[in-house]
Amino acid sequence: MNDRDLDRVLREREEIVPSSGFVASVMEAVQQEASASAPIPFPPIPFPWKRALPGLMASVALAVGLIVRWVSSGAHGNASVGSATAALPAGNLFAMLPHEQIAASTLLALEWSALALLVSFAAAWFSMKIATVRE
């Protein structure tokens, strides 16, 4: 045997004919692969109304109360605010401050609280609207 014979032996093709079901078998595997890799739509996450409702109602009540109080305090002037702050318990830090200052700081805190609540509601409403549009 020479090198050319070696080439011939190594080159010789023992042709294997694919079995009849080979294509079907491959395509079945490909179909499975395709269905497995297809994106699964996220199930809609229900909003937890039961848990959120008491908190929401409390927040709304607080916001309404604060607004009403703020409006009424604005209408009645410093006198009524002064009487309201006078009801603070003894020993409170506020007691050490002049009445006008307490009234002003309380009013400012109320205003900011009301604003924060309104912003929170607006943010929640906006988020829910976006989520609804995407569905």
Partner: peptide
């Protein structure tokens, strides 16, 4: 069109199986 892959399999099944063999 996943079914179009069948054409590729039909054309290349012989060479790929023989190479594996």
């Amino acid at each position: 069109e996943i079914a179009a892959f069948e054409g590729i399999v039909r054309r290349w099944q012989g060479p790929l199986i023989n190479l594996a063999y």
